[in-house]
């Protein structure tokens, strides 16, 4: 798989349910070896989009291409999909469930058995192999579900809210596993509400709201497009300068510093000069990037959708 072929390309995809348009004219690309964050509030169309990517539903318009081919059932074997609301067979032994899920991904039994032992060992769940789902704690079940997603060593991993319900130790563990996938030049897509996690893990993101793409691109680009007008300032004096509306739009006072939002067209260096000239003592003057959380709230907050968790 060459670097320049996108592992996933979604172009002009639209999905309607009756009068309701769940996804409208959505386009994005995901490149191999990168972690892609699929962000958006509840009801934005994330799950619908993911279902089209994994071939559960077919788009009304537009095309989903995987590894340079149009999506088809045979490509499903190369995808590992962990849905947000996932389950296991309650009264079935763990090993039997995992074997079944592997068989559905065309993995021969002998190979599956080896991988099951490997993953159960890695997750410290070996002694639960022949137990039933009902004997396991929720966290354990979640790990088993994760194993079922990666047993066939997929080239594209799609995880819907993979960290919800996991304790911090297991979150770290999961992140380690995801980085391994990234290192093997596989592609990881995950959707989340947790902007801190997304910020930490993702190379690229897309934010959708009300069925449409809001922003997308590499994390760097997205932040840069938002991040030039906020200054973290710690100073004594200079209040007159800060109330100059041609320079400063708003001042948010925190415990020992202020967040300054620059006016359109104002230059940060110009502000700094003015402050120094006014005789203020400046101990901190830092141009800050907005967090993904800020961007998310700015883009989505006005809408009636639920706030991010």
């Amino acid at each position: 798989m060459s670097e320049n072929v996108a592992s996933l390309s979604v172009s002009g995809v639209t999905k309607r349910f009756g009068d309701f348009t769940a996804v409208e004219n959505l386009s994005f690309e995901v490149r191999p070896g990168r972690v892609f964050g699929f962000l958006g509030p509840n009801g934005a169309g994330k799950t619908t989009t993911i279902r089209m990517i994994v071939g559960i539903t077919i788009p009304d318009e537009g095309v989903v291409e995987l590894f340079g081919e149009r999506m088809s059932p045979k490509l499903q074997d190369r995808i590992g999909y962990l849905p947000e609301e996932r389950g296991l067979y309650k009264k079935m032994k763990i090993v039997d469930q995992l074997r079944y899920f592997a068989a559905l991904k065309s993995i021969p039994k002998e190979v599956a058995d080896k991988r099951i032992d490997f993953w159960l060992g890695r997750m410290n769940l070996s002694e639960w192999k022949t137990k039933k789902t009902t004997d396991l704690s929720k966290g354990m079940q979640q790990k088993i579900q994760f194993i079922s997603t990666v047993l066939h060593d997929p080239d594209l991993l799609i995880l819907d809210e993979p960290f919800s319900g996991l304790d911090p130790v297991n979150v770290e563990f999961m992140i380690d596993v995801l980085s391994e996938f990234k290192q093997k030049n596989k592609t990881v897509i995950f959707s989340t509400h947790l902007m801190e996690t997304a910020e930490r893990l993702c190379h690229d993101i897309i934010l959708i709201n009300k069925s449409k793409k809001v922003i997308g691109g590499s994390l760097r680009e997205v932040k840069e497009s938002y991040g030039k007008n906020i200054i973290a300032l710690r100073s004594v004096g200079g209040d007159a300068v800060l109330s100059d509306k041609s320079l400063v739009v708003s001042v948010e006072v925190h415990a020992d510093e202020k967040d300054i939002v620059l006016a359109d067209g104002a230059d940060s260096q110009h502000l700094l000069r003015k402050l120094v000239e006014s005789g203020a003592t400046v101990t901190k003057f830092e141009q800050v990037e907005p967090t993904l959380n800020d961007i998310f709230i700015e883009q989505v907050g006005g809408s009636k959708s639920e706030p991010p968790a």
Binding site: I56, I79, P83, E85, R86, K90, F101, L104
Partner: peptide
């Protein structure tokens, strides 16, 4: 109903027709 209730169906549908 079990596969629907536990949402296993979603995983199954992403693996087979």
């Amino acid at each position: 109903v079990e596969e629907k209730e536990t949402r296993i169906a979603e995983v199954l549908f992403s693996s087979a027709r």
